[in-house]
Structures are given as C-alpha cells and as structure tokens.
Design a binder for these strands. Structure first.
Lengths: 249, 249
DNA sequence: AAGTGGTCTAGACCACACT
DNA sequence: GTGTGGTCTAGACCACTTA
C-alpha cells in the first residue's frame, strides 16, 4: 500500500493522464521554485529522490534529464545534480546575442543611467499583461563593448515581482543574476522581436553617433521559470560594428 | 561471439570511446545521408534495428530519440519512425522568422527574379569556405507577405552541391524542399547574423519604398545534415510592418 | 488483432570526482 | 574507497494506429 502522490496506479481520470516522469519533473521544478533547494545547491541523489517519491531511479533520471534540457538543473558526473544559477558567463552570453563584427564574444559592461518608479505605459501593459493601474520600475542603461557605447536599454519591471527595486542603491550590471538572488526570479526564456529604426537625437547623444543612422531595435519579453512575464526591455543597438547573431535549427 | 561493428566490449582505445547509443545514432544518420531510407520513408522498428545492430532495443530507442531532438527523424506512436522531410509548413516557418507586426504567421510567397552562374564573390568564399576559383549559382528573389513586397533575397549556392541548378527552368519557391528532393541536401540549421542598414536605390525599386528607410539585413549561412555549408543568403527586409522574431532559452 | 512507439521498472556495470 | 551520474540491458505493460 502506498500513499505517495506519485502512485500512478491510483491516479485520476484518464483525461488528466500524465506520465510519471513528467509529474516528477514538474514536482521537482515546483520544489525549486519554492526554494526547497536554492540556485547552486545540490539536489539529493537519484536514488534518494526515487525513494522519496516512490518511483524507480530510472524515472527520476528521466525527469532530471528533462530539467537539464530546460537548463533548470545542471548535472555533473560523479558530483551531483545542482539547481542552475545565473553566473556572469550565463547572463552575459546565454541571453546576449549582440556581437562585435568579426570577433568572438566580448564581455559587455553596463552603465546605469536612471531608476524610476512610474505608471506602466500602454505598450508595457500589453507586453507584460498588466492591469491598467499597475506600476513598474523603469531602468535606463547604456552598454559598452570594446570601450564603445553599443546600445541603450530601457527596462521595465513590474512592482509585483520586484517590490522596492527602485529604492535599491546597489543595482549591479549583471541584472539577471540580481533578479535571481534578490527577488527569486530566475530568467528562463525570452522572446525577442527585432526591427530596424533610425537613430533619433536621444540615440545620437547616448550612443555618440549621428541621428539618422540605422539601429537595431530589440523588444524583449522575459519569462521566469514559473512562466511569469517578469521583464520588458527595449534595446537600441548600433549596427555599424555589431550584429545580432542567432542559430536556428 | 559477435561480429557487429557495435560490439562495445571490443571497441577501440578509450580515447576514442563513444557510448553505444551515440555510435548507433551516428550510423543511422549516416545511412539516412546515404539514402538507405529517403525523406518521408519509414525506418524499421526499434526491435528490427536492434537486431541488425546487435544492441538492445533500449539503446536503439535512445539513439532514435536523439535523432528526433535533432529533427532528423519524426516518430509517431503506433505508426513508426520516419525520415524528416521539409514540407511547406516546415520550410516556411521553421527557418523563416520574419513576421508581420501584430499578426500570426502568414504564408509568404517568393518571386524569382534572376538565376546566374558566376564566380564566387569574396564574402561568399569566406562564408561558405570555398576555394578562390569555385563557382556559385546566384539567385535573386523577392518575397511577398500580405500582398506586399517584404524582402529581397540574394542566394548563393556552391556548384559542388548544386550542379547545374542554374540551368533548371522549374525552380519552385519552396527552396529548402527543392534542395532536399532534387539535390539530396537537407537543411539542418542556419546561422543568422542581423544588422540594420539604410535602403539604397535598388532596395527602393525592389520593395516599393523610399531610399533611406531602415531595413533589416539578415546574413544566413545554411548547414546541411552532413555538416556542410550549402547556402549563403542575404535578405534585406522591410521593417515598418514586419519584424524578425526569435525565442531564446 | 497485430504492430508500433511510450512508459516504467530492476539490476549490472562503467566513468568520474572527491576524500 | 565511496558515492555520484552515465550506459546498457531485459522484460512487462500501456497507448495509439491501422487493417
């Protein structure tokens, strides 16, 4: 007799059927979101988890491999399974497709220009599915690659996910790591939409270029592990020495 | 006693070690490249393949699931495992990230403007790693979305992979399907590099816009299943009603 | 009804990393 | 040495499709 929530022989109506390993994966993911294990921490071994969940070790393995594909955990042979964390590496390359022409990826830096709590503009409301009266913190940054200004960013963060972030005095330039450690929001994926626009006077000043030059405008909606839209970001990028690079398969 | 090429107990020096399922996956992939099974055709069942290769059915399964992740085969429960083929769906959406603003994806059409065999320009030589004297077929097309010209494309195809394609009189607008069926070149992945540029007079004429408007310039290097660079493509896209959309995770 | 892929289990052994 | 994840196998049963 088993009282495990994973006893598939007793599971509900067949319409709700989900393979055991998916249920296990979802449950482990939920436990990570609830910080039973925090980013960087090791999970119990496959056998321990199997025992806890009353499933076989092979089923736990399949679940953990799924979470590995989703980059939610990282596995190292002989060492263990760890909750993924955004490192400098990760934050700067995994979600930063802008590259200098003809070079390998370089370490970008960011300069914070302003922080402000304000009512959400209509485009932000639409993008983040907010309510009319929700407030957002608006950050403006300028990024530097190879000692040259390469892009300006305007970042909107809903007050509900980032309470009081506008009062912080120590916002670092590795934002995604900061989201994870201070606000328990782990960036999981982004949806980027790219257009070409002409630089206006503001762009010209910020990026030290002439108005009328072509820029890449990247609109990003950022989603957390929990599936919430946690960030909307507009990046205006010089395109003369840089390009946005992406692989499709 | 076994004489199978997959007998791992007799496998070579440990430096060359590869898990059995990887060897099986690579071998099946090779057989597909060599057209033992052609796109759309069913492979033998897991048990038959396991018997042929002298491995267990579970190992074949793991290999086939890897090839499924790579989109080299498609599996359907109760039916079988099939070599993937580029359908209209596939060719038009999987590798076509340009979308009309505020709409779902629409079916793009293409209009072929010119076909020409010529010596490869230097940028094409670099992109496709050709030799100085190699020739390429150059195609120029114009694409239409929602009854409006949305982009012009210049496509370079090495003579070695596409012999005599310049003499074809029936080049369809679903190119990737055509590459697969007529030249045994299956597109596997692309590397896209995106810049913003200003429309010149040629762009203005082709796209029915004004010179000086901002355009997206997408440079694409296309790789086949065999890992060869088979296509270089320069797309110049209107950006007023369209955007390039991509998901990162 | 027969055949396919999908799930789940159990157990053996291997490769790797830390102590 | 001990414990971890990685590979490989074998077998039972389930779900789906086609005939």
């Amino acid at each position: 007799m088993s009282n495990s929530m994973f006893d598939h022989k007793l599971s509900g109506p067949s319409l709700a059927f989900q393979p055991l390993y998916l249920q296990v994966a979802d449950y482990i993911k939920q436990l990570i979101v609830e910080r039973r294990w925090v980013p960087g921490e090791a999970l119990p071994s496959e056998f321990r988890l199997a025992e806890e969940f009353n499933v076989s070790q092979g089923t736990v393995r399949k679940a953990l491999n799924l979470l590995t594909d989703d980059k939610i955990v990282t596995r190292r042979q002989g060492v263990g399974t760890f909750v993924s964390e955004h490192t400098a590496q990760d934050a700067l390359f995994r979600f930063f497709p802008l590259q200098a022409d003809g070079k390998g990826a370089d370490l970008p830096k960011a300069e914070l220009l302003s922080v402000e709590l304000c009512p959400a503009p209509q485009d932000v409301i639409d993008a983040l599915q907010l309510n009319k009266k929700d407030k957002v913190t608006k950050l403006v940054r300028r990024r530097i690659l190879d000692n040259e200004f390469c892009m300006s960013e305007t970042i909107y963060l809903p007050q509900s996910f980032f309470p009081d972030i506008h009062q912080s005095s120590d916002i670092p330039h590795t934002l995604y790591h900061y989201y994870q450690t201070k606000f328990n929001q782990t960036v999981h994926k982004t949806q980027d939409s790219i257009k070409a626009v002409l630089a206006d006077e503001t762009d010209a000043k910020l990026l030290a270029i002439k108005a009328g030059e072509p820029l890449l405008l990247v609109s990003r909606i950022t989603e957390s592990i929990e599936g919430k839209r946690i960030e909307y970001r507009l990046s205006r990028c010089r395109s003369d020495h840089y390009h946005y690079q992406i692989e499709l398969d």
